[in-house]
Amino acid sequence: MLKLISLELRKYRFSRHIGYAAMAGLAILLFLTLLGITDYGAEDYAFSTFAGSFMLIDTFVRATFMIFAGVLLSTMIALEYRNKTMGVLFTYPIKRRKLIAAKLVIIFVFTFGMILLTDVLMGSVLVVVDRFYPFITDSLTMEQARELLLEYTVSSLSAAAMALIPLLFGMRKHSVTTTMVSSILLVLIVCSGFNGPVVSIESIIAIHLALGAAGLCIAWLSMHRLETKDVN
């Protein structure tokens, strides 16, 4: 499996995606900084509390990297079907399930890793900046920070899992557009209205976990009976 993963990374020159991810991270940072500066003093200032600020960061980061995952799904699966290189891949003496699994592991690990890393980096930037130029009204205890790390981990895991939902369309329709549109729609649904009508934290977590489970289910289904299906 590790060999298949390394071949996939080589095939798509995956290292360049790390560069793109860094650019996306910088764009989020720039946007949130602008939001922090221009909105300062407003009644509903987004960075008024640590909890709110961390949630805002997480929402943006998740949205960005879930769409990023959609791009990867389109390139590594839908496009590979459309360009018919999947047919070449399936003439190799390797289980098809394993070939697809190698791709999905890369996308899952990359999405999870990038969300967690960016969340933690941005959170740290927020804490450091607040230390020198205090703008957040409440304070952050070590206990809260530990809890936050756990929350970020769970949130990154569920986001990486639910980012696989567009695979349902990628595998069936073999269409890049459908995969991308479903990825964007998913982000619009799960990453909107974080401070809108009051929904309890528990119910948000439940929804995220349920969607994450759905993503994993779809990933499993996409590999199910792959060996007996025709490749045209």
């Binding site: 047919g87 399936f90 003439t91 007996t228 025709d230 490749v231 045209n232």
Partner: peptide, 9 residues
């Protein structure tokens, strides 16, 4: 030919 290469069953 696709059937011979197991792409089509």
């Amino acid at each position: 030919m696709r059937m011979l290469t197991n792409l089509v069953k």
